[in-house]
Design a protein around this nucleic acid. Structure first.
Lengths: 133, 133
DNA sequence: TTGCGATATGTTATATTGTAACATAATACT
DNA sequence: AGTATTATGTTACAATATAACATATCGCAA
């Protein structure tokens, strides 16, 4: 393993941390291009894949976007709550729920390998006092 | 509500039923274009959105594709098991699990509205005897 | 029944997201 | 050093999705 790409990984991680919201691959690309004009999509996707793989970021399938992992990194699947109003994402961990899920899907002999759990709704701030017009 | 678009809905539903596997919007488009040369993406997406809305089909976010609902139609969120080998999708229903999920994500005051649950893995046929080389 | 507002559908164009394929460079091993 | 292997850079393009506006249909009131 080289150490070249790792600098870029940190840079991308920083971008996600600063935004603290879901960011699309092309947004990341745009950010990177501010300093690296020749940056290509492929490169960004590779970095995002690497970061996702090692659990430092999460991909939000239903938003086609990425967020920084709030726990720094972890292996077990996350439950991601997406506020459809403010866009912020909360991360929950519930191993027992994952186990139950595997059990449910396993009834037919299905062997679960990767869980994608995304919950859309409204976060506490946006749900309670939604500031009427 | 008109009855014009409903014919198209049935046609799309038929395509998904016949394939019995996840189908991309553009695959559906291609199929439709066999008889309707001028069919446009927008139209297909609108039909798919309508069918999804009323629960007759499900969108697989992690595959960017759609499947026919195995139960004909329903309102509660489905748990979709996707076999990464043969591509087939199984559908589970587990209201208690959804309730638990809402409870977990609700700890912070988050109000869940829509659950996206997709499980990748291997189905019974593909997992047990994967036909060695 | 006709006129009009609201809604659905058709059409064109374009935006966004994602990868294939190959060139080049770094690494690791003999 | 020489060479196989893996990572990275680069170009081009494929696949997915939506904006914006035109046209048609419907529901309803005057």
């Amino acid at each position: 393993m080289s150490g070249r790409g790792e600098v870029l990984q940190l840079e991308v991680l920083d971008i996600l941390r600063q935004r603290n919201k879901p960011v699309s691959a092309y947004d990341v690309l745009g950010e990177l291009r501010k300093t690296k004009v020749k940056m290509a999509p492929q490169t960004v996707y590779r970095v995002l894949a690497a970061l996702t793989e090692c659990g430092k970021i999460h991909r939000l399938e239903s938003l086609k976007a990425y967020v920084n992992c709030q726990h720094g990194s972890h292996q077990h699947a996350s439950i991601l709550s997406i506020c459809d109003d403010c866009g912020r994402v909360e991360e929950s961990v519930a191993p027992d729920l994952l186990a139950k899920l595997s059990k449910v899907t396993g009834k037919t002999g299905f062997a679960a390998q990767r869980h994608v759990i995304e919950v859309h709704g409204l976060c506490a701030s946006c749900g309670t006092g939604p500031a009427p017009a």
